[in-house]
Design a protein around this nucleic acid. Sequence first.
DNA 1: CGGCTTTGACCAGCGC
DNA 2: GCGCTGGTCAAAGCCG
Length: 370
Amino acid sequence: MDEMRQNHNIFSMMRISSVEKREEKRELAERITLKTENFVMANSTFITPPPTTPSDFVHMPNVFSLSAPPPPPTSSIFDMMPCDISAGGDQKAGSLGFMDLLEINQDFGASASLFDWFNQNPIVVSPQQQQSFVPSPASPVLETSEVLNNPATPNSSVSISSSSNEVGEDALQQVKAEDQEEEQDQDKNKKRLNPKKRSQKRLREPRFAFMTKSEVDHLDDGYRWRKYGQKAVKNSPYPRSYYRCTSAGCGVKKRVERSSDDPSIVVTTYEGQHIHPSPVTPRGSIGFLADSSGFGAATSSFVIPQPHEYQQQHAYLYSPSPSLSFTSRFSPSFLHQEKRLESPPSLLRDHGLLQDIVPSQMIRNEAEEE
DNA sequence: CGGCTTTGACCAGCGC
DNA sequence: GCGCTGGTCAAAGCCG
């Protein structure tokens, strides 16, 4: 296990992938309506300043690099909670992490959380803006050359777009109603036993993904998962594994696959919201994980620690406990969404999950089927 | 024996 | 309509 934990490092990359033409066309043509856009950046060193303002977020460049230090010997998500994202420019205390980003509300005004901020300030990005997510040239902030993005990748279309609040609210309401319906219908065989039901457009929970550099595929995130499938991924020698939360009634799923470009990179995509507390709270309880949400959760129960709390947690997580081995450089940061996204289902096709999730070095939430 | 993984089959959506 | 692909199911097997 120790070996497996070796060289484990979460880092982020906002990678520009080559999206197939039809996806591009579709993406632009349909003007994907996103309530918010999620980006998950793990262990990231912002080559350019991290998003500390809404506009910064919108224009957040998709180039990230790893901090230099060796990876923490663990593969738990808990290990990557705190971050130490050294950033160029105006960053708060030079560190912006997972929790920090959740607290961006401080910069966003009265919003109670980043989620709230997004609720109140839907980002609307024009296609031009979408195209503006181009890799930044290497910057002095780049401590290591372990940049995972591919600057040469021509297609940088990170489609960040969103609809108006009105549309988003409507979508949210509809989605919530449908969620309840879906939960009630969560019969294993519903799809096969109820073709009519299946014929309806299948809802997709909000997703978010993150990348880790780990030899362990299945990260310990405190929840119990059951593998229910595995598929070969197109253009990748590595299969994609499908997991479902084992808690009754909890429909959270996650997918795990390795990057074909860099086998040491594991891409984990969470879908849905845990409706229960984490059954396992290893390495201490990080608020939002130990609470009722967990990854993928986009509910108001998300516990967002206040700055001073974060510091305490941070300190706690720095416990010398072997299992508490995350380090400051292990820094995923992400921007989480409160509401669902809408984007073409095709975004998740054809290129495999990795490219789907990281269309432009940004790991973002999957959109809701319209 | 319960929980989990494996794996082939099935289904839906999409593009051609 | 057909083929491809992603996602899911479910039987079988494994394991503690």
